[in-house]
Amino acid sequence: MSEMPDENNALNRLRASMTEKELGVVAVMEKVRGEYLPSGWDEDLRRAFDGLLRTVATRHDDQIDDEASERRRETRALVVVGEAGTGKTESLSRLFRTHPVLQGYGVLGSGCPLVTVSVPSPCTLKTLGIRLLRALGYPLARDMREHLVWNLVFEHLELSGTLVLHLDEMHNLTDGANVAEIDTIQKTLKALMVSPEWPVGLVVSGLPSIVPDLRAVEEIRRRGRFVRVPLLDIPGDLSSVAQVITHLAGIAGVTVEKDFAENTAPRLAHAGIHRFGIAVELVHEAIEIAIADGVPLDLDTFATAYFDRTGVGDLLNPFVAVSWAEIDCSLILLDEAPPEQVLPADPRKRDRPKSRKNKGKHEKGGR
Results as ranks from 00 to 15, higher is better:
76 R>K: 09
57 A>F: 02
131 R>C: 01
54 R>N: 05
129 G>K: 05
51 G>T: 08
62 D>T: 06
123 C>F: 03
104 G>V: 12
118 S>V: 15
89 T>Y: 07
57 A>S: 08
83 E>T: 12
124 T>H: 02
106 G>R: 05
61 D>N: 03
128 L>T: 11
107 V>R: 14
56 V>E: 07
126 K>C: 10
63 Q>V: 01
100 P>C: 10
74 E>K: 01
75 T>I: 09
54 R>M: 05
127 T>R: 14
108 L>K: 14
112 C>V: 13
118 S>Y: 04
75 T>Q: 05
75 T>K: 08
78 L>S: 04
82 G>A: 02
104 G>W: 13
94 R>H: 09
114 L>T: 07
98 T>I: 13
72 R>C: 07
65 D>W: 13
70 E>D: 14
71 R>L: 12
101 V>Q: 11
100 P>S: 13
127 T>K: 09
73 R>E: 11
51 G>P: 04
81 V>Q: 14
112 C>T: 12
66 D>C: 10
66 D>T: 15
66 D>L: 11
91 S>P: 01
83 E>S: 08
57 A>M: 08
103 Q>S: 13
108 L>E: 15
65 D>Q: 14
124 T>I: 12
66 D>K: 09
78 L>Y: 06
92 L>M: 11
110 S>T: 15
63 Q>T: 11
123 C>R: 04
122 P>G: 05
65 D>S: 13
116 T>W: 05
87 G>H: 07
66 D>W: 13
93 S>W: 05
92 L>I: 07
60 H>D: 02
86 T>E: 08
86 T>N: 01
125 L>H: 08
99 H>F: 06
78 L>D: 02
113 P>S: 09
79 V>A: 02
91 S>V: 13
110 S>V: 15
68 A>E: 15
65 D>C: 12
109 G>C: 10
66 D>F: 11
102 L>V: 07
56 V>Y: 01
83 E>N: 07
73 R>D: 04
103 Q>P: 09
105 Y>F: 15
80 V>A: 11
88 K>R: 14
116 T>E: 10
56 V>G: 00
